[in-house]
Amino acid sequence: KEYCRTLFAYEGTNEDELTFKEGEIIHLISKETGEAGWWRGELNGKEGVFPDNFAVQINEL
């Protein structure tokens, strides 16, 4: 499994977007979303897309 840590808080504006606080760990599902600048991940049981410049991939939890 791949993970990323959020660098900033983000408020999702669409139903398919994740909302998160700074410093949260998102399970990274895919970097290929069909839309440049967006990754797909899962946080707190919800799957959605989020801007990749708001997070950095990490090697271990």
Rank of each mutant, 00 (worst) to 15 (best):
E60D: 15
L43M: 09
K1W: 05
A55W: 03
E42R: 12
S30F: 00
Y10Q: 06
E47M: 08
L43W: 04
W38C: 07
K46D: 07
K1A: 05
V56S: 09
V49Y: 13
F20M: 02
E22L: 02
C4Q: 00
T33N: 07
R5T: 07
I58K: 07
L7H: 03
E24Q: 11
F8W: 11
G37A: 00
E24A: 08
Y3A: 07
R5I: 05
G48S: 01
L61K: 15
G41P: 04
F8Q: 15
S30H: 03
E17P: 00
T19Q: 05
D16I: 03
I29C: 04
E47V: 13
F50C: 05
L43D: 06
F8E: 14
K31L: 05
Y3E: 04
F8P: 06
K1T: 07
T33I: 12
R40S: 04
T19I: 03
E60L: 08
K31M: 14
R5V: 06
E24H: 00
E2M: 15
D52T: 12
G12E: 06
E11M: 09
C4D: 00
I26F: 01
F54P: 04
A9H: 12
E2R: 09
E11Y: 10
L28G: 01
R5H: 06
Y10P: 01
G45P: 01
G23H: 03
V56F: 06
E32M: 08
R40W: 07
E35C: 13
G12T: 06
G12H: 01
L28Y: 02
F54I: 10
T33G: 12
F50A: 05
G23S: 06
Q57S: 10
G45D: 06
E11C: 09
G45K: 06
E2I: 15
L28P: 04
S30P: 02
E35D: 14
T6C: 04
P51S: 04
E15C: 11
N53R: 15
E15W: 07
T6R: 03
G34Y: 03
N53Y: 12
T33L: 07
E2F: 07
G37D: 04
E47G: 05
I58S: 09
C4T: 02
E47P: 02
E42N: 12
P51K: 15
I58C: 11
L7D: 06
R40L: 14
W39D: 00
Y3G: 04
E35Q: 15
G45M: 03
E35T: 15
S30Y: 00
E11V: 10
E24W: 01
V49F: 12
A55C: 12
A36P: 15
A9Y: 08
F20R: 03
D52W: 10
W38D: 01
Y3C: 10
N53V: 10
R40C: 07
G34H: 09
E17D: 09
R40I: 04
T33M: 06
G41V: 00
F54W: 08
H27I: 08
W38I: 07
I25N: 06
F54G: 08
G45E: 06
K46M: 09
E17C: 10
E60F: 09
N53H: 13
R40H: 08
L61S: 15
V56Q: 09
A55N: 03
S30T: 14
E32F: 11
Q57D: 12
E24M: 09
W39P: 02
Q57E: 14
R5N: 04
G12L: 01
G12W: 06
G41H: 02
G45R: 03
F54K: 15
C4L: 13
Y10T: 01
T19A: 09
L61H: 14
F50D: 03
K1C: 03
D16K: 14
G41Y: 00
D16P: 02
Q57Y: 06
E24R: 01
W38K: 13
E42F: 04
I58A: 11
D16V: 09
V49T: 11
W38P: 02
G23R: 04
D16F: 14
L18V: 05
P51Q: 11
E35A: 15
N14E: 10
L7I: 13
A55E: 02
Y10L: 02
I29K: 09
A36V: 13
L43K: 10
E32S: 12
A36L: 08
I26Q: 02
E42M: 13
P51G: 00
R5Y: 05
N59Q: 13
Q57T: 13
E2Q: 13
Y3D: 04
